[in-house]
Write a protein that binds this DNA or RNA. Sequence first.
DNA 1: GGCACAATCGCATGATCATGCTATTAAAGC
DNA 2: GCTTTAATAGCATGATCATGCGATTGTGCC
Lengths: 211, 211
Amino acid sequence: MIKVIITEDNDTIREGLCLLINASDGMECIARFTNCEDMLTALPGLKPDVFLQDIGLPGMSGIEGVKNIVQQIPGATILMLTVFEDEENIFEALKAGASGYLLKKTPPAQLIEAIKDAFHGGSPMSSNIARKVVTFFKQAPSSKLKESYGLSQREKDILASLAEGNSYKIIADKLFICIDTVRSHIRNVYKKLHVHNQSEAVAKAFKDGII
Amino acid sequence: MIKVIITEDNDTIREGLCLLINASDGMECIARFTNCEDMLTALPGLKPDVFLQDIGLPGMSGIEGVKNIVQQIPGATILMLTVFEDEENIFEALKAGASGYLLKKTPPAQLIEAIKDAFHGGSPMSSNIARKVVTFFKQAPSSKLKESYGLSQREKDILASLAEGNSYKIIADKLFICIDTVRSHIRNVYKKLHVHNQSEAVAKAFKDGII
DNA sequence: GGCACAATCGCATGATCATGCTATTAAAGC
DNA sequence: GCTTTAATAGCATGATCATGCGATTGTGCC
């Protein structure tokens, strides 16, 4: 039996969830609360497997609640069940330690599946939530929208080679060009990046995702 | 009709997928390839909605393939379909622009659902993949446990100053120490990081999050 | 054709760095 | 008390770099 705890202030939704869970095979709702404070004080006496956690609660927010839960029970399985679809809430909840993130409009059958999934180590997420999480990765490190300061491919190559610790001589040999050409390229890189030595150039290249 | 392109080197799997998709309502496999190179050259003539992309391919890897696809078609919907479950591959694929990530052991019915889901803006992921992605967020802020290679605070300061483009002389003045001391610290940094010049040290510092 | 620009090459010189070896002091650990 | 380590400092030298000035090619654009 998967033992579930619900924290949700809306009476209709809370009781509905409770009924749904108890009506499903293999799981039961062992407790339900209208706010985080009550849930946290009652927690030590309970041995829940999965938390269903609203975000918009009176008093302590659901996300704060998640932080407190993981403090008491590291590795707890927590499913956010909320109306909020904004990235702020999503990422905050996941950072706090939530395992999954479902929207309240999730159909009952799927919700039951999600609880089972989470209990077995999965991370159920509503479709559009998953897309937002994935999109986060695309933006973060691969932001090649940046100007690159107009560096040519050759200049980027040489800059990258520099970051690997190669000297002008080595770079020249690797690229089959003369050392003076390397010098010339790096000189241009410095101009474009507005720097005056290798370290600063490499640092800027990393910060701005050129390398 | 959702138009699907498959890139997969294993004949059995590729043809199986193709049959499965063509047997499903609302989608068809308009092309299939055994490697990325062929796929990319044929791409301009096709108007696919969803890519099914293997990772372990001969020649260009599937992840490199993804990067090339998004260059040609920004916003393309790409589903990774692979045996790799390691975080390296998962995150690289998502960073490159994949919309979803499925394991090859995914049952056919679920695969079809995933294609539809992706087409409609979702990000289908196998359960354990989703968990790994979610876990990434938990670690993210507390990932300051990184080795740092045993650099002392002073050494980190000097390394950071170096990355700002300061010369030994400037660093010495800023920290109110002698230039030979700066030299000495940097010498130790080089030893600890196993590098032999500023650029490599700065690059490593960025890669490993020391700075 | 003319213009801009990337990529190539050359030379010279003062500035800066990498590295070897040594040494002192204070704090931390056993 | 002894050992280790971080932080400080010194010296010397060959290697490497930063920068100024100049030059030739090929490509793409108007």
